[in-house]
């Protein structure tokens, strides 16, 4: 694979993994359950709950410091057709991580991709965009203009 194609494939994969991780577990499970057909797969790594240490930057821009941990669940699967997928998702929902891994594997298969690209990935992305947009509109509605009262001496 040419370097550009690899970079492109990686950035695409990053995009759908992000969508799968950020979606609420119940939405991911509902989208998966809604599929007409689900391929057979084997667990390469059974869903495992653990933590990731979240880092911040000193002053927001400087060197890293350790802020605290977050719970994360990971899983890896291999489809019977050979593709492997991984899921790393915030929280402790094992089913969410396993579905994310299965969808990741399906997205890498030319045959299986159409089944999940719209019904799962695009569908979840759309509800994320809607939530984000609603929050941004609510925030915009609370934008104010403070004005400083100017004290003036009364003339004379």
């Amino acid at each position: 694979m040419a370097v550009e194609a690899l970079v492109e494939a990686t950035s695409e994969r990053r995009r759908w993994l992000s969508i799968l991780a950020k979606a609420p577990s119940k939405d991911v499970i509902a989208a998966w359950d809604g599929l007409a057909e689900r391929p057979a797969y084997k667990a390469l790594r059974a869903p495992e709950v653990g933590m990731v240490l979240v880092r911040g930057r000193m002053g927001g821009t400087g060197d890293a410091f350790n802020l605290g941990e977050m719970t994360v669940t990971r899983a890896a699967v291999r489809l019977d057709s050979g593709e492997t997928g991984i899921g790393y998702v915030a929280g402790r929902d094992r089913q969410h991580a396993e579905i994310a891994a299965a969808v990741d594997a399906m997205m890498q298969s030319a045959n299986l991709r159409p089944a999940v690209e719209g019904a799962v990935v695009a569908h979840l992305a759309r509800s994320q965009d809607e939530r984000r947009d609603a929050a941004a509109r609510k925030a915009a509605a609370t934008k104010v203009d403070f004005f400083t009262m100017v004290r003036t001496r009364s003339p004379g």
């Binding site: 990731v52 240490l53 979240v54 911040g56 930057r57 994360v72 990971r74 790393y88």
Partner: peptide
């Protein structure tokens, strides 16, 4: 278990 550390947010 700890899987590792994130990139700085």
């Amino acid at each position: 278990p700890r899987f590792g550390a994130s990139l700085p947010v």
